[in-house]
Design a protein around this nucleic acid. Structure first.
Length: 349
DNA sequence: AAGGCGGGGTG
DNA sequence: CACCCAGCCTT
C-alpha cells in the first residue's frame, strides 16, 4: 500500500491559516477571521446566496447581484415569497439560469422546513446545491468539518501534488486529499483560505510562488513549472449557430415572450426567435406579418456554441394575436439575458 | 462519464 | 482566438 499523498501535506493548514489571517479577501458575505475569533458567524442565507451566485462566476461580476438580492430580499423567507418573474429578472445577465430557478425552489424548501439544514449531507439534497456548495455552506456557515473544493482548490492541489493523470480521476484524488486536511476547529476559514490562495497567489497563468505560504510543500514548484498544472483535456471547438430575433413594435409597446423552463435561457424573458441552427441563416418565420427590416447582427458566445444573431425589426399599427405574448413598454424593457439585451439595444438605434 | 448550461474578463 | 471563473443537473 503506497502512502497516501496527503501525508506530505499535514503541515498545510498550520501554514495556510496564519497566512489567511493576514491576507483574506474582504468580501461582502464574509465574516473575517478576527470577527470569527470573537464568536461572530455569517448569516447562512447570505452564505448560501453568495455560493450559488458565484458558481462559475467571477467575483467582480457577481458581487453587484449579491448586493441587489440581499437588499431586495433580506432573508430566505423574503426570497421564498418573491414572484418567480421578479427573481428571474433580477438574475438576468448573470447566466446559468437554472441556478435562479433552483434558488427559488431551494428558498421555498428551506422556508417550509424552518431554516437551512446544517450538515453537508442534508444540504446536498437541496436543489442547486452540489458537492462544492454543500461543503462550503456546512463549513463556512455551520462550522462543520467539510471540504469545499472549487476550481481554485483543484488547481492548488493539482500543483501541490503535481498530478499528471487523467483529470477527472485526479479531481477525485484532490477531493479526498482536501477532505483529510480539513481542521476540526476552523473548517470555514480553511475553505476560504484555500480559495483565496488559488484566487490571489496560485493563479491560473502566473502563480506567484515567491509569496506562497505553502510553496515548500509544492511538488509542481519543485519541478519548476507550476503553471503547467492542472493538466486538463483539450476543449472541443465551438460550432457556430445562426438565428434571428424579432423586435415588433406597436406604438410604445414591444413584443416579448417567456422561454420554456427547460433548456437554454430557460424561464427567461426574451425576444421572439426560432431555433438556432448550424450552417447558416434559415428561412425567417417572424411572429407576425409586417414590413420586417434587417437591422444587423450581434454575436454572442455560449458555453458550447457561438451564435450569430440577426435582428429584424417591424412596426405594426395594432397588436396581433400572439399566444404567450408579453407586451412591454419599449423604454422599460429589463430582465433580458445578455444575448437578447444586445439584440434589443441594436434595434433601438 | 459526458454533455448542456452564460457571461464577462484576461492574455 | 483560448482559457478561466466560489459547479450543478440530466442523461
Amino acid at each position: 500500500m503506497a502512502p497516501a499523498k496527503h501525508r506530505d501535506l499535514n503541515s498545510l493548514p498550520g501554514k495556510l491559516l496564519p497566512w489567511f489571517e493576514r491576507h483574506a479577501r474582504d468580501l461582502p458575505w464574509r465574516t473575517l477571521p478576527a470577527d470569527r475569533a470573537v464568536g461572530e458567524r455569517p448569516d447562512p442565507y447570505r452564505v448560501w446566496l453568495c455560493e450559488i451566485m458565484m458558481q462559475q462566476t467571477t467575483i467582480p461580476h457577481g458581487t453587484p447581484y449579491f448586493h441587489a438580492f440581499t437588499e431586495r430580499w433580506p432573508s430566505v423567507e423574503a426570497l421564498a415569497a418573491a414572484k418567480d418573474e421578479d427573481v428571474m429578472s433580477a438574475w438576468a445577465g448573470l447566466g446559468y439560469y437554472a441556478r435562479a430557478r433552483n434558488l427559488l425552489k431551494c428558498a421555498r424548501e428551506v422556508t417550509a422546513r424552518g431554516g437551512f439544514p446544517e450538515t453537508e449531507a442534508e444540504l446536498r439534497k437541496l436543489p442547486g446545491i452540489g458537492p462544492y456548495t454543500a461543503g462550503a455552506i456546512a463549513a463556512i456557515a455551520f462550522d462543520q468539518k467539510a471540504a469545499a473544493v472549487d476550481g481554485n482548490v483543484d488547481r492548488v492541489f493539482a500543483r501541490l501534488l503535481a498530478l499528471k493523470g487523467e483529470w477527472a480521476a485526479e479531481k477525485k484524488v484532490i477531493a479526498e486529499t482536501v477532505r483529510a486536511l480539513v481542521p476540526e476547529d476552523r473548517p470555514g476559514e480553511f475553505a476560504e483560505a484555500l480559495m483565496d490562495l488559488g484566487a490571489t497567489v496560485c493563479t491560473p497563468t502566473k502563480p506567484n510562488c515567491l509569496i506562497c505560504p505553502v510553496s515548500d510543500l509544492c511538488a509542481a514548484r519543485a519541478e519548476g513549472e507550476p503553471e503547467r498544472y492542472p493538466i486538463k483535456p483539450a476543449k472541443v471547438a465551438k460550432p457556430v449557430r445562426y438565428g434571428t430575433a424579432y423586435v415588433l413594435r406597436v406604438k410604445d409597446q414591444v413584443l416579448l415572450v417567456r422561454r420554456p423552463d427547460k433548456g437554454l435561457l430557460g424561464g427567461m424573458l426574451a425576444l421572439p426567435t426560432e431555433d438556432w441552427v448550424e450552417g447558416g441563416f434559415a428561412e425567417t418565420r417572424p411572429p407576425a406579418t409586417a414590413e420586417w427590416e434587417d437591422i444587423g447582427e450581434v454575436r454572442h458566445v455560449f458555453t458550447h456554441f457561438a451564435l450569430r444573431f440577426r435582428v429584424m425589426r417591424a412596426e405594426a399599427a395594432r397588436k396581433p394575436k400572439i399566444p404567450g405574448a408579453i407586451w412591454t413598454n419599449a423604454n422599460a424593457v429589463k430582465g433580458l439575458p445578455s444575448v437578447f439585451e444586445k439584440a434589443y439595444k441594436l434595434a433601438l438605434k
